[in-house]
């Protein structure tokens, strides 16, 4: 029995994962190489830079911005970003008056094709419950202080909708290229727990 077992008769999740994979592979239900492919894809290829490119394009291309807000899945797909958890994308725009932030209260749904897999804090029960109850306080604790006049809208991800925040373009960036702008855009800004700052 492993010293890491949580209960006398229940091996750790690591061991149970290994057991499950070995059984599924033996039965021909999954191939280890296919699993390797998924892991590589999400560790190496898919990440917040995809979302950052979407945001930067929306900042420099007004037609694209309108398409993005009108049909998130379609406009994001124009850049080649699609796949599991990228269906039903809804893009909401931050303004001087409204700040938007995303949560998944039930299970940590997240728009993988544009942001990669979610960070630890997004999956945390405290984030999932408090962002609904006291978003302004929690945003403050996470380093984002909003003026009292700004309305905070919290979007709860669901099977029907995955949200991406279109952050405000920071002032003083009119000289920057689309590529340079994309480098400024952070994952946190696209979840809505931070703003994008000029370099």
């Amino acid at each position: 029995m492993s010293e890491h077992s949580q209960a006398s008769d229940r091996p750790s999740a690591a061991v149970r994962t290994e057991a499950l994979e070995s059984l599924l592979v033996e039965r021909g239900l999954v191939k280890s190489e296919v699993l390797d492919g998924f892991v590589n894809r999400y560790v190496n290829d898919v990440g917040p830079m995809n979302g950052a490119r979407v945001v930067a394009k929306a900042w420099v291309d007004e037609d694209y911005r309108r398409r993005l807000l009108d049909d998130g899945t379609g406009a994001i797909g124009e850049l080649g970003f699609s796949g599991p958890q990228g269906e039903h994308m809804v893009v909401v725009e931050n303004t001087d008056e409204v700040h938007n932030v995303v949560v998944c209260t039930l299970c940590s749904c997240y728009p993988w094709p544009v942001l990669g897999l979610p960070p630890e804090w997004y999956k945390d029960p405290a984030y999932r419950s408090r962002m609904v109850r006291e978003p302004r306080t929690l945003l403050g604790e996470m380093g984002l202080d909003l003026d009292d006049g700004v309305v905070v809208r919290v979007w709860d991800s669901s099977a029907e909708n995955r949200y991406l925040i279109l952050p405000q373009r920071p002032p003083g960036t009119s000289e920057l290229s689309e590529e340079q702008l994309a480098e400024l855009v952070t994952r946190d800004a696209m979840v809505g727990v931070a703003k994008v700052h000029a370099p």
Binding site: A13, A14, T17, E18, L20, E21, L24, L29, V30, K31, V34, L35, D36, G37, F38, V39, Y42, V43, N44, V46, G47, P48, M49, P84, G116, L117, P119, E120, T186, R187
Partner: peptide
Amino acid sequence: PRLNGELVFDAPWQSRSFAMAMALVEE
């Protein structure tokens, strides 16, 4: 440091569990 700016899995088994779900959905 990571290519996409974050650590997505804390341990290898997590990535295997994640990928098994993906593969079974795909199949």
